[in-house]
Amino acid sequence: MYTVRLLDDTIFQVGKILCVARNYRSHATELGNEPPSEPVFFLKPASSIIGPREKAIIPPYSQLCHHEVELAVLIGKWGKNIPKQEAMNHVAGYGVGIDLTLRDVQQRLKEQGLPWDQAKGFDTSCPLSDFVPASRVSDPHNLHLTLSVNGDLRQDGNTSEMIHTIPDLISTASSIFTLEKGDILLTGTPSGVGPVVPGDQVSAEIEGVNWLNIGIQ
């Protein structure tokens, strides 16, 4: 059983992690991709979660692992086909997430027209902070995100850059997947993604939300 903690000490059992692809135009551009007109989702298993100060392990089948800092949204109640105007009522809290991506594996599989789950959903690929209650975050669409590797700033963005807002993402996601209490939505990453290698220390922070420090092994 994989769980996350809300800072009021409520524990949530995680069911699934929904990630949105190319939700920051700057990130899509740096990888040579066009942003999709509608949200596109992929999944990470709950078994990919690690917590603050733990170590992420790069699998031996990859030589190029990238970091991607993201605002994580914790779903607080069941929902299906949720209207946009009701979507924020389903948010229990916000946290800091890092979507670790095996970029070489992903690219190779994409070129072959194959699914790339093993590039995104491997064990330890989803470091997460504790979550703050949604009521403590006045505007989740205006939050400063940063990520540093060994003290060097790599990513520096703002959630205002998201192409699809949190209500958009929740509404669209719930038309595809039933959302359940404890599900987590990763909302995309700004530009500046880059490699991490064993021995690196990665620090991510979202101002007004939380921080996350992990090691790479």
Rank of each mutant, 00 (worst) to 15 (best):
T3P: 01
V4D: 02
L6H: 03
L7S: 11
D9R: 07
T10N: 04
I11G: 02
F12Y: 13
V14Q: 02
G15K: 00
G15Q: 01
C19Y: 04
V20M: 06
A21S: 06
A21W: 01
R22I: 01
S26K: 04
H27V: 01
H27K: 02
E30S: 04
E30Y: 04
G32I: 00
G32Q: 02
S47L: 09
S48G: 07
I50C: 07
I50M: 06
P52S: 09
R53G: 05
I58A: 11
P59R: 08
P60I: 06
Y61W: 14
H66Y: 15
E68A: 11
V69L: 12
V69Y: 13
L71S: 12
A72L: 11
A72P: 11
A72E: 10
V73K: 04
L74N: 14
I75R: 13
G76R: 00
K84M: 12
Q85R: 15
E86H: 15
A87Y: 01
A92H: 08
Y94T: 06
G95L: 08
V96T: 06
T101P: 09
T101S: 15
L102K: 06
R103L: 10
R103S: 12
V105M: 08
Q106H: 10
L109N: 04
E111F: 07
Q112T: 05
G113M: 06
L114V: 03
W116L: 12
Q118H: 08
A119N: 10
G121P: 03
G121Y: 06
F122D: 10
F122H: 13
D123P: 06
D123L: 14
C126T: 15
C126D: 10
L128M: 15
L128F: 13
S129D: 14
D130Q: 12
F131V: 02
V132Q: 14
V132G: 14
V132Y: 11
P133A: 08
A134C: 13
R136V: 11
V137H: 12
S138M: 09
S138E: 15
P140R: 02
N142E: 11
N142P: 04
L143A: 11
H144Y: 13
L147R: 10
N150T: 05
L153I: 05
Q155S: 08
D156Q: 06
N158Y: 04
T159K: 00
E161F: 05
I163V: 04
I163D: 00
H164V: 00
T165N: 01
T165C: 03
I166T: 01
D168G: 01
D168C: 00
I170E: 05
S175Y: 02
S175H: 10
S175T: 03
I176R: 07
G182E: 00
D183F: 03
D183R: 00
I184Q: 08
L185Q: 07
L185C: 08
G192H: 08
G194A: 09
P195D: 15
P195V: 09
V197W: 08
V197R: 15
G199V: 07
Q201T: 15
A204S: 15
A204F: 09
I206R: 14
V209F: 13
N210E: 15
L212V: 13
N213F: 08
I214S: 15
